[in-house]
Amino acid sequence: MKKAFFTGLILVLALPFVYLPLLSLATQWRFPLLIPDELTLQHWTQALSIGGISGSLLFSAFTALAVALACTALGFRVARTIARHPHRQTLVAIAYLPYAFSPVIYAFCLQFFFLKTSLNGTVAGVFLGQFLIVFPFTIILFVNHWTPRLRAMEELVYTLGGTPAAAWSRVLLPISRPALLNGLFQTFLLSWFEYGLTSVIGQGRVPTLPVRVYQYIGEANPYFAALGSTLLICPPLLFLWLNHRFQQKIHA
């Protein structure tokens, strides 16, 4: 019983990572075969040469990187102010609102303003929309990083004669490196995964990778949808692996 549960668990966890790449390599997969009739790189060469997916891949990577950098940098700094604010609890509670709100519904709420400012259907609009949901999350992520101990360390730099710039460059940033890296990963993924808000604000004109995958699902093109899905799960898997290695190093 316990063994069956364990096997089932491993299957549930691992199967999509085998199935989706396999499907992207298939040209035909007849029922009830458990593996495709033949495996080729046909879709991959096609997808990467025509543009389409490779364009979306680059575009998504660029957007996610921009959102991650902007949100992590600003969130890290603003979280410091909020962590030391007399109304810290209220401010943190506010940060939960946009984060908890369904992104697609938030996008419909914002649509009027984005239309008025001609941001609908533009890359800038999608960036701003994603920023509005990812930035509050960084506050939740970083507010507990700014402990009284870190503050004491910062003050120590001042009494030792250091300027605020020196406190940041010689102490605060170096000791916050793991937290910042973690923040970058998580915000990158929030943007990288985002579909609901992007589809509303981008209006199909901003083809990120999730938007592209949805299109392929709609066109009943499972092979390309699987290909896009495989691309979507690669960076997060890489991050997880890097994090795993990092943890192992710490334990060692």
């Binding site: 003050e155 120590l156 001042y158 009494t159 030792l160 004669g161 250091g162 300027t163």
Partner: peptide
Amino acid sequence: PQERGMVY
């Protein structure tokens, strides 16, 4: 604090 010559 930087200019007071006192370390806390």
